[in-house]
């Protein structure tokens, strides 16, 4: 990757993290851990790889991004707001009465959200259906779907994976946010999904196992996936839950945290 692009994406990911810390902080509580861990992947997708048009969110040939771990809604919202999918004044309305930015992704409320999610395990099936529909229509869209590691305890993830693998949906790129933590503790202690790379390989996927907080690795992995035909794709993003929010990284469990005003202001250095 060119150094100027890497510099831009790195700075953008930092800005988006601060935006998300502020967005959740203004409400006071939220799913900070899983929002931070996927931010590098979203940055690469929306500022480099995915074809989307903020002026035309329903553009038929756009790439789709399904945030199946729907509680990462704020991560999507800071990106979509930054790109101009919705009016800037919405940014301070997360979870407020009547908002268009609810904690979990809602395609009927937020322009640019391609699927409603929140009841875990469901988004990947929807992505599989989109991939089949795109293939049927000769629509060049790539379908990106971000799933969680805790979410992958849901059986439906494996129903969808079995289908995608056996039907060679090569326009589907799944990303696993493998931050190894879930609401109640470590994924490994509660119901381990390890080893994910081997699991998805055995389901017929083309699998890449990368540092999911490394922008260059993410970009390369997406390029590799798009170049390999005949397989559904899995990119295992080895991430750190809370990455880039020092208080979240330091917490024993940052799945959902209270974020008082002084904390988010200190973390972001934002005074306004």
């Amino acid at each position: 990757m060119e150094s100027s692009k890497l510099e831009f994406l790195t700075a953008k990911a930092r800005q988006l993290r601060d935006d998300a810390i502020e967005m959740i902080g203004r409400f006071g509580v939220g799913h900070i851990g899983g929002v931070m861990s996927v931010m590098d992947a979203l940055t690469v997708l929306y500022y480099d790889k995915a074809k989307v048009d903020p002026k035309n969110p329903k553009w038929n040939e756009r790439d789709r991004v399904i945030m199946s771990k729907g509680h990462a809604g704020p991560a999507m919202y800071v990106v979509l707001g930054d790109l101009g999918f919705y009016p800037r004044e919405w940014e301070k309305t997360l979870n407020l009465n009547g908002t268009n930015l609810p904690s979990h992704c809602d395609m009927q409320k937020t322009p640019g959200i391609d699927m409603t999610a929140g009841s875990l395990g469901q988004g990947l099936s929807v992505a599989v259906g989109m991939a089949e529909a795109a293939r049927l229509d000769h629509n060049p869209a790539t379908i990106y779907c971000i799933i969680g590691d805790g979410e992958s305890q849901e059986g439906q993830i494996w129903e969808a994976s079995m289908y995608a693998g056996s039907h060679h949906l090569d326009n589907l790129i799944v990303m696993l946010d493998y931050n190894k933590m879930q609401l109640d503790g470590k994924v490994a202690d509660i119901c381990d999904i390890a080893p994910p790379a081997e699991k998805w390989k055995s389901f017929g996927f083309d699998v890449q196992d990368i540092d999911g907080n490394d922008i260059e690795q993410i970009a390369d992995a997406i390029d590799n996936a798009k170049a390999r035909k005949g397989f559904a794709h899995m990119i295992v993003l080895n991430t750190i839950k809370g990455k880039g929010a020092s208080f979240a990284e330091a917490a024993s469990n940052c799945h959902s945290m209270s974020i008082p005003e002084e904390l988010w202001r200190k973390e972001t250095g934002r005074t306004e």
Partner: peptide
Amino acid sequence: DRFFNVGIAEANMIGMAAGMSTFGKIP
């Protein structure tokens, strides 16, 4: 090309149908 036997996986079938409907299909 317009018929999808998803196997014994009703939850996945419903999700797939939802995804297809976002592409304007009537599943």
